[in-house]
Design a protein around this nucleic acid. Sequence first.
DNA 1: CTGAATCCCTGCCGATACTG
DNA 2: CAGTATCGGCAGGGATTCAG
Lengths: 131, 131
Amino acid sequence: MTHQTVGHPARPGLPDDPRANVTEPTPSCPVEITLAALHGRWTTLVIREFLQGDRTFTELRRALPALSDKVLSDRLAHLTEAGVLDRRRHPGWPPRVHYTLTPHGRRLGPVLQALWDWGTQHQPLPPAEPQ
Amino acid sequence: MTHQTVGHPARPGLPDDPRANVTEPTPSCPVEITLAALHGRWTTLVIREFLQGDRTFTELRRALPALSDKVLSDRLAHLTEAGVLDRRRHPGWPPRVHYTLTPHGRRLGPVLQALWDWGTQHQPLPPAEPQ
DNA sequence: CTGAATCCCTGCCGATACTG
DNA sequence: CAGTATCGGCAGGGATTCAG
């Protein structure tokens, strides 16, 4: 089955988009864009927090105690730059910063859901005997 | 919007599963399982090849010329161990090995589609002015 | 033909200490 | 409170060489 009808209904592949024809990893590929947004340890857990509402730095630190300040700061900056989070500094003392999902960030819900669903269907195979 | 109705229809969050309550990255989390399967440079491009049909080592090498033998070998072994690919050695000479998506691997189609879709909706933000 | 072994280089992550 | 600066360890990825 080397060839495949292009017009096949319920086609399991990806869209017929010029960006789907790349032959090496490139940042302009939509899949790479999304994986770049999700990139890094802790990132999906941070996003999960925001799917329940906005958060401050300290609230996140309490929710994810094993996450260091530096990495949390990195993740928030990264997600903000990726257009996933909106950063809002509140005036006064003590300084408070609220982060919220942008509309674009909220659309990561279905993405994480897809990742979740595949993972739940995963049954680890018994180690294949050498043939 | 700190609180949210649990029973909200079309809930954008993740399932009410005990595994969703982890407070640190753990390999048993379904999201981590899927990201682990997709992990590594070139991995999604390799999977894309298989969504069009089975492939041999050499066919993949031709389709992705900038991918080194070692990394291709790593990816194939990794995806096989993750239950995504099925590895079948053919007897005779020269040795030939065919790789095919398992049923489980075929279910990665919707996952890649979700990643693709989010990425296409992505419009890079102009660099935010410091507030 | 299909890999495995080795080497080097880079970038991520964590820990710690410090600042507006 | 919400970060930044710095450092070290380690794993990933590429190039090259060797093997079944």
